[in-house]
Amino acid sequence: EVRVRALYDYEGQEHDELSFKAGDELTKMEDEDEQGWCKGRLDNGQVGLYPANYVEAIQ
């Protein structure tokens, strides 16, 4: 698992997508798939998908 930080706001479009604001931190659980989606977990425990290019790894 990798900690990542959102670069942009994202509003989930489907029930299985996460929503977050730029600057939020979350945990990447799985690497992106061929469509460019990652599985992650918000700090509130919600698990879902998000676009991989909306986040950067925290060093």
Results as ranks from 00 to 15, higher is better:
L42W: 00
E14K: 15
A57W: 12
Y50D: 01
F20A: 01
Y10V: 04
N53K: 14
E30A: 14
V2C: 07
V2T: 07
V47Q: 08
R3D: 02
D9Y: 00
Y54T: 11
T27Y: 15
N44A: 08
D9R: 04
G36A: 04
Y54D: 05
A52S: 14
K21M: 06
L49K: 07
G40D: 01
Y8D: 15
V2I: 13
E25S: 07
Y54L: 13
K39S: 07
F20V: 02
W37C: 03
A52E: 04
E11R: 08
W37S: 06
R3A: 03
R3I: 05
E1S: 00
G45V: 00
G45S: 05
A6V: 02
E17P: 04
R3V: 04
E30D: 09
A52Q: 06
F20G: 01
L49Q: 03
V2N: 14
F20I: 04
G48R: 00
E34K: 15
R41C: 02
W37I: 08
V2P: 07
Y10F: 11
L18F: 08
N44S: 13
D24W: 07
A22Q: 07
Q35N: 09
D16M: 06
D43R: 05
I58F: 14
L18M: 04
H15R: 13
G40M: 00
P51M: 10
F20D: 01
A22D: 04
E30S: 11
Y50C: 08
R5P: 00
T27F: 08
W37T: 08
S19D: 05
R3K: 13
E11G: 07
G36T: 02
Q46I: 07
E11W: 05
G45E: 04
E1I: 10
R5T: 12
E11K: 12
E25Q: 08
G40L: 01
E56Q: 09
V47K: 04
D43M: 11
H15S: 10
A22H: 07
Y8E: 12
E17M: 13
N44M: 04
L7S: 06
Q46P: 08
V4Q: 05
Q35S: 14
R5Y: 07
Q35G: 13
E34H: 15
D43P: 09
D43Y: 05
I58C: 09
D24E: 12
A22S: 13
E25C: 06
L18R: 00
G12E: 08
K21I: 09
R5K: 04
N53L: 10
D24Q: 15
C38P: 03
G23C: 03
E30T: 12
Y10C: 06
Q13V: 08
K28V: 13
Y54F: 04
L26S: 01
E14I: 09
N53Y: 09
G45M: 05
E30Q: 12
T27S: 09
E32I: 06
L26E: 01
E32Y: 13
G36E: 15
E14S: 14
K21V: 09
E56W: 08
R3E: 02
D43F: 10
E34P: 02
V55A: 13
V47S: 13
S19P: 06
D24A: 10
C38Y: 04
T27E: 10
D31I: 06
K21S: 10
A6I: 00
E17F: 09
E32A: 14
L7N: 05
A57L: 14
K39G: 03
Y54A: 08
G23R: 05
V4S: 05
D24V: 10
Y10T: 02
L49H: 09
A57Y: 15
N53E: 04
T27L: 10
V2A: 05
L26W: 13
A57P: 15
G36M: 05
E32D: 11
D9Q: 02
Q13L: 10
V2D: 15
R41Q: 02
L42P: 02
Q59L: 13
V4F: 11
E1G: 09
E14F: 08
D31M: 10
Q13C: 14
V4L: 07
E14Y: 14
R3S: 05
L18S: 01
L18K: 01
V55Y: 01
H15P: 14
A6C: 06
E17V: 15
E25N: 10
G40V: 00
D16C: 05
N53F: 07
Y54C: 09
K21F: 02
G48P: 00
D43N: 14
Y54N: 12
H15L: 13
G40R: 00
C38T: 07
A52I: 06
R41L: 05
Y50E: 00
G45R: 03
G23W: 05
Q13N: 08
R5V: 04
L42C: 09
A22P: 03
T27W: 09
L49S: 15
E34T: 06
E11S: 12
D31V: 11
Q46G: 12
G45K: 10
E56Y: 05
E32G: 12
Q35Y: 05
L42Q: 08
A22G: 09
Y50T: 02
Y54H: 11
Q35F: 07
L7D: 04
E56N: 14
D9E: 08
W37M: 11
L18V: 08
R41H: 07
R3P: 02
D31E: 09
W37Y: 00
E11M: 04
R3W: 05
W37L: 14
E34V: 10
V55R: 00
R3Y: 02
E17R: 12
G48D: 00
Y50K: 01
V2R: 14
A22Y: 06
G23A: 10
D31A: 14
L7W: 01
M29W: 05
Y8L: 12
E34R: 07
E25K: 06
S19F: 03
E17T: 15
Y8A: 14
E34D: 08
D24N: 09
Q13D: 06
R41V: 07
G45P: 00
S19Q: 01
L42R: 08
G40P: 01
K21G: 08
G36W: 05
L26C: 02
G48C: 00
E56K: 09
A6F: 00
P51L: 08
Q59P: 15
A22F: 09
V47D: 05
L26K: 02
V4R: 02
P51C: 08
E1D: 02
D9I: 00
L49V: 10
Q46N: 14
D24S: 08
G12I: 01
V2Q: 05
K21H: 15
W37R: 13
F20K: 01
V47L: 15
P51E: 03
G36Y: 07
Y10N: 10
L26H: 00
K21Y: 08
M29Q: 06
G12F: 02
N53T: 11
E1H: 03
E56M: 13
D33L: 13
C38L: 03
N53D: 14
G23D: 09
D16I: 07
D43E: 13
D31Q: 12
D16A: 09
L18N: 02
V47M: 15
G48Y: 00
Y50G: 00
D24Y: 03
D33E: 14
K28R: 10
L42F: 04
D31Y: 07
Q59R: 13
K39D: 02
V55P: 01
Q35D: 12
R41G: 03
E30M: 10
D33W: 05
E32K: 09
L42D: 11
F20S: 01
R3H: 03
G48M: 01
Y54W: 03
Q46L: 12
D33F: 08
E17Y: 13
L26P: 01
E17C: 13
L26Y: 03
S19T: 14
V4Y: 12
A6G: 02
D24C: 11
G12C: 12
A22T: 11
E30V: 12
I58G: 12
N53W: 05
A52R: 10
G23N: 02
R3T: 06
A22W: 04
K21L: 11
E11V: 10
E25D: 04
E11T: 12
A52P: 07
C38F: 03
S19E: 05
D24T: 12
L7V: 08
A57R: 13
I58A: 15
E1V: 15
Q59C: 15
K21Q: 10
L18W: 02
E14R: 07
L18Y: 01
L26F: 10
D31G: 14
Q35L: 12
V4H: 05
R3F: 00
A22E: 10
N53G: 11
D24F: 05
